[in-house]
């Protein structure tokens, strides 16, 4: 579509060195960005007058266990004035951290706290990075693929004669 091509053209003109891969599917534009360049790229997306992505809709992560880098941090941004959307993906490994985009969009504050709580990804320069959903002394990160799925073992006929394993 017309708007995707123009966004793509501007991205390729201005920040070619940060973009790893671009894909487009049924009107949705996805840009994979290098981890170290995420804040300049987001600042460019917000400040450029043609793009003006001033609203962060979502910031989440995906655990792709078995792939290096393990996590994908996904940013969804929307331009209120121009009515177009973009998705940014950043590949982060277990021991790596990604810089916080709260300096660009301040709505990223609680999203990044949730990603830290659920996946354990560290965000540098975050004003207040601590757990938001789980209790403060909880150990583990629940949405990782190697975190146990059920809390109490489900009782079937093959294990009904012993007490259930909990957590």
């Amino acid at each position: 579509m017309e708007s995707e091509n123009s966004i793509l053209a501007r991205l390729k003109n201005k920040i070619p060195q940060s973009v790893v891969e671009v894909s487009e599917f049924r009107g949705e534009l996805t840009v994979v960005v290098k981890r170290e360049h995420i804040v300049p790229v987001c600042a460019f997306l917000r400040d450029d007058p043609e793009l003006s992505f001033d609203f962060l809709s979502d910031l989440t992560a995906v655990d792709r266990l078995g792939r290096k880098p393990r996590f994908d941090v996904v940013y969804h941004s929307y331009s209120i004035s121009r009515n177009h959307r973009i998705r940014l993906k950043v590949g982060v490994d277990e021991d790596q951290s990604v810089e916080s985009v709260t300096s660009v969009w301040s709505g990223a504050n609680w999203f990044e706290r949730e990603v830290f709580d659920m996946f354990g990804i560290n965000f540098e320069n975050h004003p207040d990075l601590k757990r938001i959903l789980m209790p403060d002394d909880w150990e583990g990160h629940p949405l990782r693929k190697d975190f146990p799925l059920t809390r109490e073992e489900v009782m079937f006929t093959h294990n009904k004669n012993r007490p259930p394993k909990i957590e």
């Binding site: 959903l133 789980m134 629940p142 799925l149 059920t150 809390r151 109490e152 489900v154 909990i166």
Partner: peptide, 8 residues
């Protein structure tokens, strides 16, 4: 809810 969030 047999998960991490709910007390069983």
């Amino acid at each position: 809810f047999n998960n991490y969030a709910v007390i069983q």
